[in-house]
Design a protein around this nucleic acid. Structure first.
Lengths: 222, 222
DNA sequence: GCAAATTAATGATTTATTCAAG
DNA sequence: CTTGAATAAATCATTAATTTGC
């Protein structure tokens, strides 16, 4: 599966570029599906060129290049041949559930990073797996609850106070009650990546040291 | 297919409350997940400790400085330091629309990266903005179309073939018809750190208390 | 006992909906 | 009101547990 990267893109602060628009219209009357050829306008951005989009490094990479190592004594360890989906170990699930019970629902990127690092000790895992796990778990707990409440009508969904676990540098855990009824301020963001895209990280010794590859930040000024 | 068991390295039992999740059954309970092949000699997960979550230097996450941290947990959304949300310039919109008309709908990370780089020339922008733009534009074009089709009930554009622009490594552009109304091949994923986090400006602050609050949960239900 | 066939569980994506900035 | 941002719901896809036939 693809290679996943923790993107940490553009965070640099640029000066607000002298954008000469702002406030202007921004959306054209929907022109559903017209052939691009019929819309010569917009091209005012002359310098833009599709070609410039191409990076020398891009291009569809192959999966594990002819890995003939697939012999009989193939260990059951990792080996993401071409890319399979994450298959969590008991330990990983345990930790995740613990965190979930602790109140974590949508970890932000940093948290994901750390969780991933931890879980990586018990098996191969990537940040996105953690992210998805929380998404799915939350959603499925929700529907399970809904199903149950239907048949049981036990409304007390959460009699237990919701707590927030905070980790500080000393590793202490603090708990406090949730006070915000609704908050929408998650900072994690995700987007899909290439399909087959290499996974490359084949077998062998890439067990640890799995540094999150951060976005190949281009030397953009920041 | 080619792959079978993937990393089932260990199976230390980590019996925890079975209360939550797992065993989530719909109709008939399947046996709880057990990993048959096991590496019994694994260090128990008991070694897991929240403390280990704290990494001395999890990464130079820093963002635009300038944001004065309100408190450990801001009650409200963080005010973004430099600017709030992305405000696209005309050029940016133009390019994006061009790409959209060209057939691009859900660019992958690499494409996003490139697009972002390009658009960056015209104003501040981040990868996620590009991602969101396509998401939103697609969705909104769809609903507009739906609205219009209601009153017009015409489907002339159906005849127009949808083209997909593909960028290959050499920078060539290929077009082809879209053949599948539903295509699901993208995988991979990445996420990014958004604003906040930043905390003080330059380096150094990293040493001190790095508190990460594990996201609190809130009343679900909407 | 094994392995193909079934099916539940769940990882991974996409689509729809919602919230709020401007 | 428009639309960037974020989340939830729906869906697809793959894995693994279970069943079944030999």
């Amino acid at each position: 599966m693809g290679n996943m990267k923790v993107h940490q893109l553009a965070r640099g602060l640029w000066e607000h570029e002298p954008s000469l628009s702002l406030g202007c219209k921004r959306l054209r009357p929907l022109a559903p599906k017209l052939h691009p050829s019929s819309s010569p306008d917009h091209t005012s951005v002359s310098s833009f060129d599709l070609k410039t989009f191409i990076r020398p490094e891009s291009g569809p990479r192959k999966l594990c290049p002819s890995d003939d190592k697939r012999d009989s004594h193939s260990p059951q360890v990792e080996t993401h041949p071409g890319g399979t989906r994450w298959n969590p170990t008991q330990e990983q699930i345990g930790i995740l559930e613990m965190l979930y019970r602790g109140g974590m629902r949508t970890p932000n990127a940093q948290q994901i990073e750390q969780i991933t690092a931890q879980l990586g000790k018990y098996g191969k895992i990537e940040g996105k797996n953690v992210f998805y796990w929380f998404q799915n778990h939350k959603a499925r707990e929700r529907q399970k609850q809904k199903r149950n409440s239907l048949g049981l009508s036990h409304s007390p969904r959460n009699s237990a106070p919701i707590t927030t676990i905070t980790l500080d540098s000393r590793g202490e855990v603090m708990e406090r009650e949730e006070d915000s009824p609704y908050k929408r301020k998650c900072r994690s963001w995700s987007f899909e990546y290439l399909e087959e895209e290499s996974r490359s990280s084949s077998s062998s010794q890439e067990e640890e040291n799995r540094t999150l590859e951060l976005f190949p930040l281009h030397p953009e000024g920041r």
